Deep mutational scan, measured.
Amino acid sequence: KTVHVNGVQYDFDNPEQAERFAKEMAKKAGLQIQFHGDQIKIE
């Protein structure tokens, strides 16, 4: 899974790890999470 945070890309082999990371980042920055198939976007 790939997580995009403000244009920066983070790759994870483990989907659960990717989602946990995305939730942490979104919570910290007060941003929205969008799921697009294999990609998670935080903007």
Rank of each mutant, 00 (worst) to 15 (best):
Q17V: 06
N14L: 08
Q39F: 12
K41S: 10
D13Y: 02
K27Q: 14
A26S: 06
G7C: 10
V8Y: 08
I40D: 05
N6F: 14
K27D: 15
A26R: 03
G37T: 08
D11T: 13
F12M: 02
D38V: 10
N14S: 14
I42N: 06
F21Q: 00
E16F: 06
F35K: 05
T2S: 09
M25G: 00
F35D: 07
V5M: 12
V3K: 00
V8Q: 07
I33C: 08
V5D: 01
K27C: 15
I42W: 05
A18M: 02
Y10F: 09
I33D: 03
V3G: 01
D38E: 09
Y10V: 03
G37F: 07
R20A: 14
V5W: 14
I42G: 08
I42M: 08
G30Q: 09
D11H: 15
Q34T: 14
N14A: 04
F21M: 01
F35Y: 14
A18D: 01
Q34I: 14
Q9S: 09
E43Y: 11
Q34G: 06
N6L: 12
G37M: 06
P15T: 10
A26C: 14
M25Q: 10
G7Y: 02
Y10L: 02
K41H: 14
K23W: 10
G7L: 02
V5K: 01
K23P: 00
A29E: 14
V5C: 15
G30D: 10
G30L: 05
A29C: 15
Q34M: 12
F21C: 02
E16R: 05
D11L: 12
H36R: 08
I40C: 06
H36Y: 12
D11K: 13
E24L: 05
R20D: 10
K28W: 12
A29N: 13
F21L: 01
E24V: 01
F12P: 00
F12Q: 01
G37H: 08
I33W: 03
Q32D: 07
L31Y: 11
G30V: 04
K28Q: 12
Q17C: 13
Q9K: 11
A22G: 01
T2V: 08
E24G: 00
M25P: 03
K23Y: 13
R20I: 12
K41I: 15
G7A: 02
Q32A: 09
K23M: 08
V3T: 01
L31D: 04
F12E: 01
N14I: 04
E19S: 05
I33P: 06
E19V: 14
K27S: 13
Q34A: 10
A29L: 15
L31C: 14
N6V: 03
V5A: 02
E16V: 06
Q34R: 07
T2P: 03
P15W: 14
E19N: 05
E16I: 08
G30W: 08
V5R: 00
L31S: 09
V3R: 00
I40T: 05
D11C: 15
E43C: 15
G30M: 05
A18Q: 00
F21P: 00
Y10I: 03
D11I: 14
E43P: 09
N14M: 04
T2H: 07
I33Q: 04
A29F: 15
A29P: 12
I40V: 06
E24T: 02
F21T: 00
G7P: 01
K41A: 09
K28M: 11
H36Q: 10
R20L: 14
E19L: 15
E19I: 15
A22I: 12
V3D: 01
Q39K: 10
P15V: 12
K28T: 10
G7T: 01
N6S: 03
A22E: 06
H4N: 08
A18R: 01
K41D: 07
Q39L: 13
G37P: 07
L31M: 11
L31N: 09
V8K: 10
V5F: 15
G7M: 02
N14Y: 06
Q9E: 05
F12W: 02
N14F: 05
K41M: 13
A22C: 08
K23D: 11
D13A: 08
F35A: 08
K23S: 09
L31Q: 07
E43L: 09
H36A: 11
H4R: 07
E24Y: 10
H36D: 12
Q9G: 05
G30C: 12
G7D: 03
P15L: 11
E24M: 05
Q9Y: 07
E43I: 11
V5H: 08
G37Y: 08
V5I: 12
M25H: 05
Q34C: 14
Q17F: 02
E43F: 11
T2N: 02
P15M: 10
Q34P: 04
I33T: 04
H4V: 15
H4P: 00
G37D: 09
V5E: 00
I33N: 05
A22K: 04
Q34F: 13
D11A: 10
K41Y: 15
T2Q: 06
N6G: 09
E16A: 09
K1N: 12
V3A: 03
Q17M: 10
A26M: 04
K23A: 11
N6R: 01
Q17P: 00
H4M: 14
Y10W: 06
I33V: 12
D13I: 06
A18T: 00
K28P: 09
I33F: 04
E16S: 06
V5G: 01
Q32I: 12
H4E: 08
E24N: 02
K27A: 13
A26Y: 05
A29Q: 13
D11P: 03
F21H: 01
V3P: 01
A22Y: 11
G37A: 08
G30E: 10
G7S: 03
R20H: 12
D13M: 06
D38H: 08
T2E: 02
K41F: 15
K28D: 08
H4G: 02
K1G: 05
V3E: 01
M25D: 02
E24R: 03
L31K: 03
G30F: 05
N6Q: 05
A22T: 02
D38Y: 07
M25L: 13
E24W: 12
N14P: 00
R20V: 10
K41V: 14
P15C: 11
K28S: 08
K27E: 15
N6H: 09
A18G: 01
